[in-house]
């Protein structure tokens, strides 16, 4: 059996594909979810995650394990790439949120999901990314602050504002969802 590499990133940079895939397998699922929720596109999310991992191998890569964890760095990289892409394409999630559930028995739940996707897409950019990282990826406020380059206080207030907005926008859905259980 292959020995677990001591420093997978260093070995990946030396051309060890297995070490590189080890890093990828460890980190990619939450990064993909985050990229997908930010962009609303499977292909964009796929491309962004690949770019972020490949960027780790480049000589000019700014990842410094003394400053942040690999996970925090990668979330930050995904965020930057997604924002760049969204600015370039001027896309809006609100226009057509993507859902992957089959709308039959859970039609109501799907409609609720669509409403949630639209409501989140309509949030200001900084509130949206904070909410996605806090609620969907369950990251600590300190880690979100590092990723978004904000103070913890600012993260907390943006998260609160996002939740207040969503509570108002989605108020009509609460009793319906309760009834569908």
């Amino acid at each position: 059996m292959r020995k677990q590499p001591e420093n997978p990133l260093r070995e990946a940079r030396q051309g060890d594909e297995a070490a590189f895939l080890l890093l990828f397998d460890e980190h990619h699922p939450p990064l993909f979810r985050f990229a997908w929720r930010l962009t609303g596109s499977m292909s964009d999310a796929e491309d962004i995650v690949q770019e972020c991992f490949l960027a780790l191998l480049k000589p000019g890569c700014s990842f410094d394990p003394a400053r942040s964890s690999m996970r925090t760095y990668l979330f930050g990289a995904v965020r930057n790439q997604a924002l760049k892409r969204l600015q370039r394409q001027e896309q809006s999630l609100a226009a057509e949120p993507i859902l992957f559930r089959t709308p039959e028995a859970e039609l109501l739940r799907d409609e609720a999901a669509r409403a949630v996707a639209s409501a989140i897409a309509a949030l200001p950019e900084t509130q949206r990314e904070v909410l996605l990282l806090a609620h969907y990826e369950q990251l600590a406020l300190a880690e979100i602050a590092q990723i978004t380059q904000l103070e913890i206080g600012a993260v907390k207030s943006r998260l609160q504002r996002a939740r207040v907005t969503l509570r108002e926008v989605l108020a009509a859905w609460a009793p319906q969802l309760e009834g569908s259980k």
Binding site: E46, R101, A112, A113, V116, L170
Partner: peptide, 21 residues
Amino acid sequence: LDQLLDSWEAPPPPSTLRSGL
């Protein structure tokens, strides 16, 4: 609110993500 937010599920990463990388 949390329960409602959880209704928006993300798809699993496609297999092409790994093979493409």
